[in-house]
């Protein structure tokens, strides 16, 4: 036992020479496969370096994304701050602004609602609509074409035969009639912004207003309250012959022959007459006995309007037919005044 104890003391020696002696005398013990398998299992359970690189790369990418996101957010915030007005309004001013904003918002909303379908013509025409929104006759250039095309086709059956209130079929006017107040609010400011001026053109019985991009012809007659009863007219002239008279919803139409050509004249009651025309259009004053009118020349198209006793007449043809159209207009005389001749002023 004693010698075994002496030998065990070798294990605890700190003597380098003794350790070197032991190392030279005896090899370290050889392993068995059990120890290798333990190392192998530990190696298998160790995260693979490639996997570690993948995780590290994903972590770096996530950090970069987070950093970029934060920087972008900060930059956007900074941009918003920079775009703000430099001076904040005083608290009292803020309150005032808040108090007045609802009305402004309403006006803005109303303007958005009404501005989309509005044309320049209807914008200007909405001013008289305020007073008598239901009795306004709105006729834009396009509407004029449509109305004329309808008028040139005598059997019109869409509108009632007697219509006290003449309304244009175009949608913008309809919208203005259905929403008169918002339209008024919305259009008051634009109307003042583009205040029309009196045009150089003088038309008897009409006011011609000049807008930036168009002209507007307004009849200055005092139209009587429409009663749905159109006055009867006779057509009598040297080279004019009445072919047919048709009562339709849109008014009364006269098929008149002049110079081997047939024209259609439409007679209507008007509550108010406003017509928008292009700047390039030509207006020619036309003086008739107890009536007044004008030619509207647009390219090769010639339209003649004349008014008498609150009723209006419209006729369309070519510029070459101007004399014939004038002759037809002169030949229209009220039945009660049939005996009196019409003559040029």
């Amino acid at each position: 036992m004693k010698i075994a104890h002496t030998l065990d003391s070798l294990r605890y020696t700190q003597n380098e020479a003794a350790l070197q002696e032991i190392g030279s005398l005896c090899p370290a013990p050889q392993p068995d496969d059990r120890l290798f398998e333990r190392s192998w299992q530990k190696y298998q359970n160790t995260p693979h370096p490639g996997r570690l690189r993948l995780y590290r790369g994903m972590g770096i990418a996530a950090c970069l994304l987070l950093t970029v996101g934060l920087l972008t957010g900060v930059y956007a915030k900074q941009q918003r701050i920079e775009t703000r007005p430099p001076q904040e309004p005083a608290p009292a001013m803020q309150e005032t602004t808040e108090e007045t904003q609802p009305g402004a918002e309403t006006a803005a909303e109303t303007a958005e609602e009404t501005a989309a379908p509005m044309t320049t013509a209807t914008e200007a025409a909405l001013i008289p609509v305020q007073t008598q929104p239901e009795t306004v006759m709105q006729t834009t250039e396009a509407q004029t074409q449509a109305v004329i095309s309808q008028e040139t086709q005598p059997p019109v059956t869409e509108a009632p035969a007697v219509q006290p209130i003449m309304t244009a079929p175009a949608e913008p006017v309809t919208e203005a009639q259905t929403k008169p107040e918002p339209a008024t609010e919305a259009q008051t400011e634009p109307a003042t912004q583009s205040m029309p001026e009196q045009a150089d053109i003088q038309l008897t019985g009409f006011a011609v207003m000049q807008y930036p991009d168009h002209k507007q012809v307004i009849c200055t007659d005092d139209f009587p309250e429409p009663d749905g009863a159109l006055e009867e007219y006779h057509v009598a002239g040297h080279s004019v012959a009445l072919l047919a008279v048709t009562d339709a919803d849109a008014g009364r139409t006269y098929d008149v022959e002049a110079g081997e050509k047939t024209f259609t004249v439409t007679q209507r009651e008007y509550a108010e007459f406003i017509l928008d025309v292009e700047d390039e259009s030509e207006l020619i004053d036309l003086g008739l006995n107890r009536s007044h009118g004008f030619f509207l020349l647009q390219g090769e198209t010639c339209t003649l309007y004349w008014f008498r006793s609150g009723e209006g007449f419209c006729m369309q043809g070519n510029t070459a037919d101007l004399i014939s159209m004038l002759e037809i207009a002169r030949s229209f005389t009220p039945a009660q005044d049939a005996a009196e001749p019409t003559e040029m002023r």
Partner: peptide, 18 residues
Amino acid sequence: ILLLRHFYGCNSAEIART
């Protein structure tokens, strides 16, 4: 054998394997 037993603490089987 003596050193494997008393310095490294190996048993007979480990010494035999070594």
